[in-house]
Amino acid sequence: MSEDVHLRHLRYFVAVAEELHFTMAAERLFVSQPTLSRQIHQLEAQVGAALFARDRRSVVLTDAGQALLPTARELVRAWDAAMVRVREASAARLRVGMSTTLGRGLLRRVRAAYAEARPSAELVVRQVGWEDATAGLADRSADVAFLWLPLPRPAPYDWLLVAEEPRLLLLSSGHRFAGRDEVDFTELLDEPWLALPAASGGLREFWLATAQRGGQPVRVAAEITTTDETYEALVDGVGVCLAAAGNAPIFTRDGVVAVPVRGLPPSQLVLAWRRDDRRPVVRDFVEAARRAGDAQGA
């Protein structure tokens, strides 16, 4: 096998081999189907053999795929077990994932509360692109994550609500609605919108407010994957987007304004963690977030 084969390729291969369905395997891995297909093609190029025979109706393992599957499973299981041992050995280190820089001073308050419980603990904050709506929980690169509801396939996760806020409209300061005190969402149906990547699933739909559009399709002007991309697209007048009230100050600098919107349910920010992760370091961080939220409410 080529030394360039990554564990990710093997993990994706095992998922497709077990599901025998690319769409179902992509949902299981929290990636888009084109991304999954691309990774499988890369693996087949590296091993020099087709691993699946596929047509429009079925996917089956080739002889080469059947030969690779037991070893691929063993390697993935061995790596996951090793990561569990590493996490246990570094129990004082906690990785926190997030897709957006947190406004409202939330992270600072949680850090302070966590330091009281674990003064020697190390927090590693990871910024994760919006292509991964779990901010690292799904691939275990984060131990806890600040996420927006709805969560993708929430069954593997528990979560704590840390903020509930109205959604505001972000737009260029030159937009015709920029000077308004408030707009109704029905006034925005024909606007060009900035959208999260398709891989973010239900999260993309929530921030496009598709449930409140009465079936009218969205005019997607551009996809955005980072805070900086969003700001630049807003300043250039490419489109408009929604943001939680607590995060709006991240964007409302030169050239971008925020306007309240009528007719939308609020956004909900949660701290999420894997349900099977019962380590005290995770429990203490969740309790710190709870205390920080209680202090904010008071």
Rank of each mutant, 00 (worst) to 15 (best):
D139H: 11
A138L: 13
R85H: 10
V282H: 08
L68H: 00
P34T: 06
E18F: 01
L234W: 03
L68Y: 00
A133G: 05
P249S: 08
V257R: 10
E187T: 05
L107N: 05
E44G: 04
A295H: 04
V257S: 08
L36F: 07
R274K: 13
S120Q: 12
V31R: 09
P119Q: 06
D277H: 07
R118N: 10
L10C: 08
A209R: 02
R291P: 01
Y157W: 14
T23P: 06
E122W: 10
G179F: 06
R56W: 11
L269D: 01
G215E: 01
R153S: 15
E182H: 14
P265W: 00
S267G: 15
Q33I: 11
A133C: 03
P217L: 05
T62E: 04
L10S: 07
V261E: 00
R56A: 14
R93Q: 12
L137D: 03
A244S: 15
R95W: 13
T227K: 08
V256F: 07
A115G: 10
Q212V: 02
T62M: 04
P197K: 03
R274A: 13
F177Y: 13
A295D: 09
R180A: 15
A121C: 04
A298Q: 13
L61M: 09
T35A: 13
H6A: 14
L10D: 06
F177I: 03
R262Q: 14
M24K: 15
P150C: 06
D190M: 02
G179S: 09
S120F: 10
V286K: 06
T186E: 15
R253G: 07
H9Y: 09
F206E: 12
D228M: 09
Q46G: 04
Q127H: 14
A209Q: 00
F185G: 00
F30T: 12
R109K: 11
L10A: 07
T101F: 08
G202T: 07
Y12Q: 14
G214Y: 05
W207Q: 07
N247M: 13
A211I: 00
R11L: 11
Q212H: 05
D190F: 03
E187K: 04
A78K: 09
R204V: 01
T210Y: 01
L29M: 14
R38S: 15
T186F: 09
V235I: 07
